[in-house]
């Protein structure tokens, strides 16, 4: 890889981060929120790879990335499981309606 590819990577990271944060802040659907979180994590994974690439530590960052994917999957699974339970018990996936705890 050369310099231009890391530029592409950088643009990709920024784009994904933007999409992720935009999704987190605006989406009302629980499943989409979990997806937005996933997009954020993917952005950082890409970031890790690009960073490792520019500093010649690709082996290190690959091992990091694999670990992150594992940990992140667990979080996503729990998130989805909670969403399913919420759909069952509350009957909605809309976070705006999930605001009984306030004050």
């Amino acid at each position: 890889m050369n310099l231009s590819s890391s530029y592409v990577g950088l643009i990709g990271i920024l784009g994904l981060l933007g999409v992720g944060f935009y999704g987190l802040l605006t989406t009302r659907n629980l499943i989409r929120i979990v997806i937005a979180l996933q997009i954020l994590v993917k952005a950082t994974l890409l970031g890790l790879i690009v960073a490792g690439n520019t500093s010649n530590q690709i082996n290190l960052v690959q091992s990091l990335a694999v670990t992150v994917i594992v940990a992140d999957t667990v979080v996503a699974v729990i998130g989805i499981a909670l969403a399913v339970q919420i759909r069952r018990r509350v009957g909605t996936l809309d976070v705006k309606e999930l605001s009984t705890l306030r004050g």
């Binding site: 987190l24 629980l30 929120i33 979990v34 979180l37 954020l40 979080v75 729990i78 998130g79 909670l82 969403a83 339970q85 919420i86 018990r89 509350v90 999930l98 605001s99 009984t100 705890l101």
Partner: peptide, 18 residues
């Protein structure tokens, strides 16, 4: 089974994961 507990858990998860 409790909606409030699920709500708290989910909010905690999303914020903490961010």
């Amino acid at each position: 089974e409790r909606p409030a507990s699920l709500e708290a858990g989910l909010k905690y998860l999303v914020q903490s994961a961010t």
